[in-house]
Design a protein around this nucleic acid. Structure first.
Lengths: 231, 231
DNA sequence: GTCTATATCGGGATAGAC
DNA sequence: GTCTATCCCGATATAGAC
């Protein structure tokens, strides 16, 4: 019987749904994505196999749901650091810190998400259509990082920087997944050094003399985007 | 299992092996990687399913074998253009042209190879240990592209450029796999513009004033490589 | 709409006989 | 080296309970 007394902002369905997702993530973390079976996940969540599929179309939809949830839960934290931290490099660094901290316990199965980066057909591709909303919110955060940056950001380049930073972030995460050094220390160093180099490069690119160079970068980005109008 | 180094005295085994591989590639090209089943491949090659697995540990090992073969077959073509073409940008462009031309008929299933870029555990990862030999030969080609370049290539940066160019190439290929424009025209444009920008940047970086910048790039690369000594 | 149970299928991968 | 038989698991289907 349903219980109408419960305040329950979440209904029974949501409860079940998140119980399945939690069981899945728990297993993914402990045994990895491939090693965890849907039968196990269902059993761990105390639901029948069919019920797990009722809520999630596929095993990978669970990873997708995690990605979604991650976005939702990271958003307020990113907001927070954007309020507090000043200065472009520090702001970027803070955003990245939030993400890496959040993803840290899930590092071992994050590959399951990125694995489809090379498959444009696949719904889980981080560059694909289905993940667009999540990606756009992410890119918007990088746009916010530039707020408060005095007018020394080159105007011509500025509109494309958030997208490029998102790409840079994806590269860092890919590196991180591979990073076998203790505590992924190499990624930490790489984050610092690359961010430093990045901001220096932006500063260098800002000098008027390099306007032709900037123009070519913009042309490159436009050529890559083509007429598809991703944003 | 099989020995990739040997010029292979073609016995019965090699004959069967390549018959299976050919059947697989044929199906991959016609129906894509996912849509082709091992049963189909075996049947097409007139061997039993188990026999296909005797020669290839997994379906993906077939893609790996293709990657291997691609390297073997492209090598002499790359040699050829390196003999003929002069000038850094033209040489790089020529190398890329050989690759894209070779991969063109296989574009639709090439994603199956790159799909494991995000999975360090996976033997097929293009960054992993198992593909190292193939990767190194590839990187060596990019090193050769710099031959004949007068001493205007920055000495400090030079040792790391081949690796970086290989990475750049991987990025281009990933973009290409995603490219839905007619005849993948956008990738063609991107190749031209990015290569142009790349050589310009190298030229810019060569000026003595930018030595500190170069130093930081080198530090970045070293930090990324860590003590693992990839090369 | 939510959930169980069970049967079935398709396909990757393996074992073991020959 | 080659085959047949089998296993495992993701996914679907179905019938029914609440």
């Amino acid at each position: 019987m349903t219980n109408p007394d419960q305040p329950a902002p979440k209904g029974k369905a949501d409860e079940t749904r998140s119980r399945i997702l939690n069981a899945a993530l728990d297993l993914f973390r402990r045994k990895g994505f491939e090693q965890s079976t849907m039968r196990e996940i269902a059993s761990e969540a105390h639901v029948a196999l069919g019920n797990a599929y009722y809520y999630f179309d596929s095993k990978e939809a669970l990873v997708m749901a995690f990605y979604q949830r991650a976005g939702d839960e990271m958003a307020p934290r990113v907001e927070e650091v954007l309020q507090e931290v000043k200065g472009l490099e520090k702001r970027l660094s803070a955003i990245l810190a939030v993400k890496f901290e959040y993803f840290e316990p899930n590092r071992t199965f994050l590959g399951a998400l990125l694995r489809h980066a090379a498959d444009p057909e696949h719904p889980l591709s981080p560059f694909g259509e289905e993940t667009r909303r999540i990606r756009e919110r992410d890119i918007e955060f990088f746009a916010r990082a530039f707020e408060g940056t005095r007018g020394d950001m080159p105007k011509d380049l500025a509109p494309h920087l958030p997208k490029l930073l998102w790409l840079y972030q994806m590269g860092l995460i890919l590196f991180w997944i591979y990073d076998r050094s203790p505590n992924q220390r190499r990624t930490t160093v790489l984050r610092e050094k690359s961010l430093d180099l990045l901001t220096s490069t932006l500063k260098l690119l800002s000098i008027p003399l390099l306007r032709p160079m900037r123009k070519r970068i913009v042309e490159l980005v436009l050529a890559a985007e083509g007429d598809e109008a991703h944003a």
